[in-house]
Amino acid sequence: MADAELKRKMTYSLFCFAIFMVAIVFGSCVYLFMTGGVEDKKWAASIISAITSGLIGFLIGQGKK
Score class of each variant (00 low, 15 high):
Gly27Gln: 04
Thr35Arg: 12
Tyr12Gln: 10
Ala50Asn: 05
Thr52Asp: 02
Ile48Thr: 01
Ile56Arg: 03
Ala23Arg: 04
Met10Glu: 12
Gly54Ser: 01
Gly61Asn: 02
Ala45Ser: 14
Leu14Ala: 10
Ser13Lys: 08
Ser53Cys: 14
Lys9Glu: 09
Phe17Val: 07
Phe20Ser: 03
Ile47Ala: 01
Trp43Asn: 06
Glu39Pro: 00
Gly61Ala: 00
Lys9Leu: 12
Phe20His: 03
Ile24Tyr: 08
Met21Arg: 07
Lys65Ala: 11
Cys29Phe: 02
Val38Cys: 09
Phe15Cys: 05
Asp3Ile: 03
Phe17Cys: 10
Met21Tyr: 10
Val30Tyr: 06
Ala44Leu: 05
Phe33Ile: 02
Arg8Val: 06
Leu14Met: 09
Ala44Thr: 05
Leu59Glu: 05
Ala50Cys: 05
Trp43Ile: 08
Ile24Lys: 12
Ile24Trp: 10
Met1Val: 15
Ser53Gln: 13
Ala23Ile: 08
Ala50Gln: 03
Ile19Lys: 12
Leu32Lys: 08
Gly27His: 04
Lys64Met: 15
Met21Trp: 07
Asp40Ala: 07
Ala45Asn: 12
Ala18Arg: 01
Lys64Phe: 15
Ala23Glu: 10
Asp3Phe: 05
Gly54Lys: 01
Gly63Tyr: 12
Phe15Arg: 03
Leu14Glu: 08
Phe33Tyr: 07
Gly36Trp: 04
Val22Ser: 06
Asp3Gln: 07
Ile56Glu: 02
Lys7Arg: 14
Ser53Glu: 11
Ile51Trp: 02
Gly37Thr: 00
Ile19Met: 11
Leu59Met: 09
Met1His: 15
Ala2Asn: 08
Gln62Ile: 09
Met21Gly: 04
Ile47Tyr: 02
Thr11Trp: 06
Ser46Glu: 15
Glu5Gly: 12
Lys42Met: 09
Val22Ile: 13
Ser53Leu: 15
Ile24Pro: 05
Ser28Ile: 14
Lys9Phe: 09
Trp43Met: 05
Lys41Phe: 02
Gly63Cys: 15
Gly54Asn: 00
Thr35Leu: 14
Ser28Met: 15
Lys42Pro: 00
Met34Lys: 09
Glu39Leu: 13
Gly27Leu: 08
Lys65Trp: 12
Phe26Met: 07
Arg8Lys: 13
Lys42Trp: 05
Glu39Ala: 12
Met10Gly: 04
Ala23Cys: 10
Lys42Asn: 04
Phe15Ala: 11
Phe33Leu: 07
Lys41Tyr: 03
Cys29His: 02
Ile19Ala: 13
Gly37Met: 00
Gly54Glu: 01
Gly57Lys: 00
Ile47Ser: 03
Lys41Ile: 04
Leu6Thr: 15
Lys64Ser: 13
Phe17Gly: 04
Ser46Phe: 14
Ser28Arg: 13
Gly36Arg: 01
Val22Gly: 04
Thr11Tyr: 09
Ser46Lys: 13
Leu14Ser: 07
Ile56Ala: 06
Leu55Ser: 12
Phe33Arg: 01
Asp3Arg: 03
Cys29Met: 08
Gly27Lys: 03
Ala50Thr: 08
Cys29Arg: 01
